[in-house]
């Protein structure tokens, strides 16, 4: 935001990370946990977008759906089928939670593609909370549903007995790495794309490179649209996979 003003002023100023700065929406004070910031604004806009897509779009409950209703039904069917196929039929009770995560991520990602906007999902704080929530609830669920036999997830009985302790160690490590990869994957993807676009935007300040730069921004923007959806999809499907492990820990 600020970088454009400066790069017009003269010379090339790269401040690709400025767009990720959390700042108060009103005034200029310090940021407390309750402060209304640009995070608040763009998360609220994500809520508005979800309401528009899933509530207002389907308000007519038409037998033959309108375009907006089709989008809502498509999103519903897409995630519902994913939960059913990946996590199993007994996991459809958790469908609202996965739908919540997916809709929030996909809306936040796409809102972040609006120029001058703030991408909430590019922050590790946001994605880490979601990933930890998934990790903790899935682990708890595993123990509640299966008791101690949930630990058989780490004890691969189809492997030779001598290998099992080593495999168990690897399984445990990979299990605890899950929330890290889960959160950094999303935040990293969102941050990298936006930062690259910003770098190319700074290059546009030089008249000679500007056409190339605009072309590059267009191409990366198209890629980012793809990434926005795919990352939301990946987050949701991995959540389903973890959920499946919790419900059916036996390989």
């Amino acid at each position: 935001m600020a970088s454009e003003v400066q790069s017009e002023g003269g010379g090339l100023v790269f401040q690709p990370m400025d767009q990720f700065v959390v700042k108060p929406l009103f005034g200029d004070g310090s940021i407390q946990w309750y402060t209304v910031t640009n995070v608040t604004l763009w998360m609220a806009l994500a809520v508005v977008a979800i309401v528009v897509i899933l509530v207002l779009g389907t308000a007519r409950r038409a037998m033959v759906p309108s375009r907006s209703q089709s989008i809502g039904e498509l999103a519903y069917g897409f995630i519902y089928k994913m939960v059913e196929d990946v996590a199993g039929k007994d996991a459809v009770g958790y469908f609202p939670y996965i739908m919540t995560l997916f809709m929030f991520i996909v809306c936040a990602n796409f809102l972040g593609l609006i120029p001058m906007s703030f991408t909430t999902t590019s922050h590790i704080a946001v994605t880490a909370v979601m990933a930890m929530a998934v990790f903790l609830s899935v682990t708890l669920l595993g123990f509640v549903k299966n008791g101690m036999s949930f630990l058989s997830l780490f004890w691969i009985s189809s492997a030779p007995l001598a290998l099992r302790p080593i495999l168990a160690l690897i399984e445990v490590i990979s299990y605890f790495v899950r929330p890290v990869s889960h959160s950094i994957r999303l935040a990293g993807n969102m941050m990298a794309g936006h930062a690259v676009i910003k770098v190319f935007a700074a290059f546009a300040g030089v008249a000679v490179i500007a056409p190339l730069s605009v072309l590059a921004i267009t191409a990366i923007y198209a890629l980012e649209i793809l990434v926005s959806f795919i990352q939301a999809y990946v987050f949701a499907i991995l959540t389903c996979v973890y959920l499946k492990d919790a419900l059916h820990p036996h390989h």
Binding site: V22, W33, Y34, M43, T100, F104, T120, A125, V126, M130
Partner: peptide, 11 residues
Amino acid sequence: GNQIFWLVVTL
């Protein structure tokens, strides 16, 4: 803290 608070509210 701010982000986590608003994220939880949003979710």
